[in-house]
């Protein structure tokens, strides 16, 4: 019991005094996961829009694949990205393994299906007549897509946040392709695992609290967005 209390006290001290190592870890986590989310947004939103508005053979299979991808275990992604980036692997010459870039690549693979799947659902949830209304007001095809994406902007924001929440908290891929190198690829999750295994509970608890606050902020915003109604 005493150990936990000591841990909490030390954790708060680390946070309040902005311990340089903790700050470095948080900044890198935000940088890696933020970049990965941004890239996933570009790919996922485009894919979601295409799946929502285009009808092509095999579309159902693609949608099913995206939905499967939304629940893909990060460890599996880490495995495949590792194999690709391995020194002797197909992309070995890029020398990306154990770099933040490799972590970003892995996280993009994890976040993209999440963003794409939720975007598709958000666009399909709009009333069909909203498209008729846009067309009936003189919108071109591109303007119509823009209007519908704009009308779905809040659920789309939810897609982004879900993607971010997914990658900031994953560990399997980050540790496999990043390697948890101090000051270079060490992020919140990998650091928490390592400090716990070393018995440095105070740091581990501090990092855990930070991670918890981040995910809480993400989910609180998501919940608020989901409560919002559309106009008549």
């Amino acid at each position: 019991m005493q150990m936990i209390l000591d841990g909490l006290r030390e954790a708060l001290r680390l946070l309040v005094t902005l311990d340089p190592e903790v700050v470095r870890i948080v900044v890198l986590s935000l940088k890696v996961s933020g970049t990965a989310t941004l890239v996933a947004l570009l790919i996922g939103l485009s894919g979601g829009v295409a799946l929502a508005f285009l009808r092509f053979p095999g579309r159902d299979i693609v949608v099913a694949a995206v939905n499967t991808g939304m629940g893909i275990p990060p460890v599996v992604v880490g495995l495949f990205v590792s194999i690709l980036l391995w020194r002797n692997g197909p992309l070995g010459m890029l020398e990306l393994l154990y770099t933040p870039t490799a972590m970003i690549v892995a996280q993009v693979v994890i976040a993209t299906p999440i963003v794409m799947g939720i975007s598709l659902a958000a666009l399909q949830a709009l009333p069909e007549k909203l498209r008729w209304q846009a067309v009936g007001l003189g919108a071109s095809r591109l303007q119509t897509i823009w209007i519908l994406v704009r009308e779905a902007r809040l659920p789309l924001l939810a897609a982004v946040m879900a993607g971010f929440g997914g990658v900031i908290s994953e560990i399997g891929a980050s540790i496999m392709v990043g390697g948890n190198i101090k000051g270079y690829t060490r992020v919140l999750t990998t650091a928490t695992v390592m400090e716990t295994s070393r018995g440095n509970f105070e740091i581990a608890i501090g990092l855990g609290i930070l991670l918890l606050l981040l995910t809480f902020a993400v989910n609180a915003t998501l919940t608020k967005i989901q409560q919002r109604k559309r106009p008549r």
């Binding site: 009333p127 007549k129 909203l130 008729w132 209304q133 067309v135 009936g136 007001l137 003189g138 071109s140 095809r141 209007i147 704009r150 009308e151 902007r153 809040l154 559309r230 106009p231 008549r232």
Partner: peptide
């Protein structure tokens, strides 16, 4: 029809039973 009808659709307007207002 489709995009070819755009010049025509820019000269008309439609209102439905539901107001279908934008956010």
């Amino acid at each position: 029809s489709g995009e070819a009808a755009l010049p025509y659709r820019r000269r008309i307007a439609v209102a439905f039973q539901e107001p279908l207002l934008f956010d």
